[in-house]
Simulated assay, not measured.
Amino acid sequence: MAEDSISRRNFLTTMAVTTASASLAEPSDVVQPTRSRAANMPIKVVCNEKLSEAEVNQIKSAGKNIELQMAASQDALKKCIAEAEVVLGRLDGDTVKLAKNLKWFQNWGAGMENVLSKELIEHPCQVTNMQRTFAPVISETAIALLLSLTRGLTQVSIPAFQKKEYKEADDISLDDLYGKTIGIVGMGGIGSETARRLHYGFNMKVLATDAKPMPKPEFVAELHDPSWLMEMVPQVDVLMSAAPLTKETKQLFDSEVFSKMKPSAYFINVSRGGLVDQDALVKALKEKKIRGAGLDVVSPEPLPASHPLWTCPNLVITPHNSGEAPIRQVRLMALVSENIRRYSNGLPLLNVVDKAKGY
Rank of each mutant, 00 (worst) to 15 (best):
A2E: 13
L12D: 02
L12N: 03
A22C: 02
L24E: 04
E26L: 15
N40Y: 09
N48I: 00
N48S: 05
S52L: 15
A62R: 01
A62K: 00
Q69N: 15
D92C: 12
E122N: 07
P124Q: 00
M130A: 11
P136M: 08
I143Q: 05
T150I: 12
P159L: 14
K163V: 10
K164Q: 10
K164H: 11
E165P: 02
A169H: 05
D170N: 14
I172T: 03
D176N: 11
L177D: 00
G186C: 07
S192W: 05
E193C: 13
G201D: 07
N203A: 13
A208I: 11
F219P: 15
V220S: 04
E222R: 07
D225N: 11
P226S: 04
V233A: 04
D237M: 10
L239D: 00
A243D: 10
A243L: 13
M261F: 14
P263V: 06
A265S: 07
I268H: 00
S271L: 13
R272M: 13
G274E: 11
L281C: 01
K289Y: 08
I290E: 02
R291F: 02
G294F: 00
P304H: 02
T318W: 13
N321R: 10
A325C: 15
A325M: 12
P326A: 14
P326L: 08
V330C: 07
G346V: 06
N351M: 01
D354H: 03
K355P: 08
A356G: 10
